[in-house]
Design a protein around this nucleic acid. Structure first.
Lengths: 244, 244
DNA sequence: CGTCCTCTCAGTGTATACAATAGATTTTAC
DNA sequence: GTAAAATCTATTGTATACACTGAGAGGACG
């Protein structure tokens, strides 16, 4: 099966949206993109429709496509939706996990533990923070994998990507606390992750669900409770993007 | 804003998929549809992409679009996903409902109560059953509305439609029990609905969630536990389609 | 000076012609 | 007669030309 131009265009635009090259709200004009990618407008339109399906792009008749951009209310809804799905998935993971799944989850957890320690000691946080974010994604992804529900995983990954794009440019990055506070917070998150892991290891479906619920709820409150106090420094956040 | 052909095509095809005219697995060829709807292939392709986003259609490069058709495993996953979302939404509804929302939920509940009684007495069940199904949809929809999460509502409605289409033609309708059993079952469902209503009325978020979880879990087990024993009588089910 | 109207034009929506592909059909070789 | 290869065909993918829309620029009028 030969690759089709639509897919080339899709990948190209998607990557650029995810890494912030096309920030939320920016117009995606078919003519411009067609030149850029060196295909005609037809596959571009196709690609934009696919991106619309992912929720990354919004298309209005005669007005064209823009990178999706939402208000804080909708963002909260999205987080909440993810909480519902991901905690449910954690419950499933506790029931359906294989030993291999468990090892992967544990591996991510332990790597994160090491990183948190190293960050506490380090002068230069930034590169380690990126690594931590990547391991965090790995941890959550491993749980989705263990839940053995392809649909749920797909949906959660979709929401996760959306949140990344939208959070980056819409409401600014997290406020910068002092190092001590941040270190404490990372330790706390690590403890919550451990709770989740142990519940899954013990095949405690209800416990895993509760632990994940609690963890995500705390995350959301932390992120959304303190919006609007800081500058937009999305550029830093995107220094080394994690594209799933 | 003038209406666009893409939307015309979208509505046309969507309706035909939902009412069973294009059963799961059937090919949706752009040329044929273009003649039928009297537009060119371009807006047809657009419409099919939108339908793919809804999950109703599957598009493979060079092989064209088919009405989505899934195996029982995937169907279970879908039901489970809906359970996760809808129970979460019930919890939200308990917190966010207005009095108006509550009245609508109650109205649907009461109408269903009457219908269950009338069905118990009636000779001809069929027309009343359709009405019951419609009220059931109204009940659940009212709860989604009360949850005040546009995203969640949209997603649940999407899954609901998908289940309708897929369940209809893939695994056959429910087995036919005798009237006494069915009457008892309807009474039981009615009781569960009442539980959900009362929890929402009492603003008992946790209780509403639990009640909805229980209700849907029971529904799924009832539907999926007894697959493959009966003929496919989707035609009956589609006698008077409920298109949201 | 402000408001309304017209006109222009950039950009999207649609039709159509043509190219490329996957699967069916026929032909060919053994 | 069967299996492999070549050809055909139906259908999708892509490019392009043209039609249509919406928004903003610029002028007419109060």
């Amino acid at each position: 099966m030969k690759s089709v131009n639509t897919d080339v265009a899709y990948d190209y635009i998607r990557k650029r949206v995810l890494n912030g090259h096309f920030p939320p709200g920016s117009a995606l004009m078919t003519g411009y993109l067609a030149e850029e990618i060196k295909v005609s407008r037809t596959p571009i339109r196709d690609a934009l429709r696919k991106l619309e399906a992912d929720g990354l792009v919004e298309i209005k008749p005669h007005l064209g496509a823009t990178v999706k951009s939402i208000d804080i209310k909708e963002f909260r809804e999205m987080c909440d939706l993810r909480l519902a799905l991901e905690s449910h998935a954690a419950g499933l993971a506790a029931r359906n996990r294989t030993d291999l799944d468990l090892r992967e989850i544990r591996s991510a957890l332990e790597t994160m533990g090491d990183l948190v320690e190293r960050i506490r000691m380090a002068e230069q946080e930034r590169p380690l923070l990126n690594e931590l974010a990547r391991e965090d994604a790995r941890f959550h992804l491993a749980i989705m994998e263990a839940a053995k529900s392809h649909l749920m995983k797909k949906e959660i990954v979709r929401l996760h990507l959306l949140e990344r794009v939208l959070a980056g440019a819409d409401f600014g990055d997290k406020p910068v606390f002092n190092k001590t506070v941040n270190d404490a917070r990372r330790k706390m998150v690590q403890a919550k992750h451990a709770d989740i892991y142990h519940a899954i290891a013990a095949s405690d479906s209800f416990g895993a669900k509760r632990a994940m619920e609690y963890h995500l709820h705390e995350l959301i409150e932390h992120d959304l409770g303190s919006r609007g106090k800081s500058q937009n420094n999305a550029d830093k956040m995107l220094a080394e993007p994690i594209i799933l």
